[in-house]
């Protein structure tokens, strides 16, 4: 089985994240890493291989992003993926999800031209844009069925059965390869790279492709070709000090109730 896991390089959520002057995410000034939500996809791909012992399962980590984004691929390789593909091209900067899905789909086609791809896996969303639309867009572009937001993944042969937890109901959804599968953070903690994994990652094949390698024109992607754009951003307002009710004459309880009522809590 040939699995492609899409991995995104995102700004570290614990760092001070910023925007560029054109309202795109600053991906240079902040330390980045493999999106935590995509780690779950890598983990599920690795578990799949471990569960289906004896099958020839190859896992490719695919990333679209600036030069530094190779760190996301390296992390996936350290965790256990077999090879990496990095699509990097200045023209891609500022691409929205529609444009990004085009690049991912074309890269997936090129990978598939060499060896048929059975399964494309992604996380449930990115931790920066949080759109959750890439899996659906990829499925549409690749003309594949999509099984999304899986919290439990089981498979037998070509049939994948997943649990999909909604707010009010839990669905069991079945799909047949080839398909696109996105997994949630409920699928189980992602592993940490072992020392051997770190040492081995350096020797694993890693290809770097430009847009021209996958047959995408520069004017099909990037900020100018994107269907959506961020109009403006605003920092979260600083936390304001709460209202302190001082009870000197026994009126404290009333004041508290008045406050809660004014905020419509009661």
């Amino acid at each position: 089985m040939n699995i492609v896991v899409c991995v995104k390089y995102v700004p570290d959520a614990t760092a001070d994240r910023q925007f560029e002057s054109d309202n795109t995410v600053d991906r240079v000034g902040v330390d980045g890493l493999l999106s935590e939500l995509d780690e779950y996809a890598v983990e599920q791909a690795l578990q799949l291989r471990e569960k289906r012992e004896g099958e020839d399962i190859e896992i490719t980590a695919l990333c679209v992003g600036p030069e530094k984004a190779v760190d996301a691929i390296r992390k996936a390789l350290q965790m256990g993926a077999d090879k990496g593909v990095h699509v990097v091209d200045d023209a891609i900067a500022g691409s929205d999800s529609v444009a990004t899905s085009l690049v991912l789909a074309k890269a997936r086609e090129k990978i598939g031209a060499e060896k048929k791809v059975d399964l494309v896996m992604t996380g449930m969303a990115s931790t920066d844009a949080s759109m959750s639309v890439i899996p659906a867009m990829l499925a549409e572009r690749l003309e594949l069925p999509q099984v999304t937001f899986a919290s439990v993944v089981e498979s037998q042969g070509e049939v994948f059965r997943v649990r999909r937890d909604g707010d009010t109901a839990t669905e069991i959804v079945e799909g047949r390869l080839p398909m696109v599968l996105s997994v949630t953070d409920q699928t189980g903690e992602a592993r940490y790279p072992s020392f051997k994994g770190i040492m081995a990652a350096k020797k694993k094949p890693l290809e770097t492709w430009a847009l021209s390698d996958i047959g995408v024109e520069a004017d099909q992607v990037g900020l100018s070709a994107s269907w959506t754009a961020v109009e403006g951003t605003e920092a979260r307002p600083p936390r304001t000090q709460g209202e302190i009710v001082t009870d000197e004459d026994g009126s404290g309880a009333t004041a508290l109730v008045d406050f809660l009522a004014s905020k419509k809590f009661i």
Partner: peptide, 22 residues
């Protein structure tokens, strides 16, 4: 289990094959 404990032990004996620095 993650191979962190025995990073300095030779690989052929179940370690990581690294050094004392690791």
């Amino acid at each position: 289990k993650n191979g962190y404990l025995g990073v300095n032990i030779p690989e052929e004996y179940g370690g990581g094959g690294g050094g004392i620095g690791d």
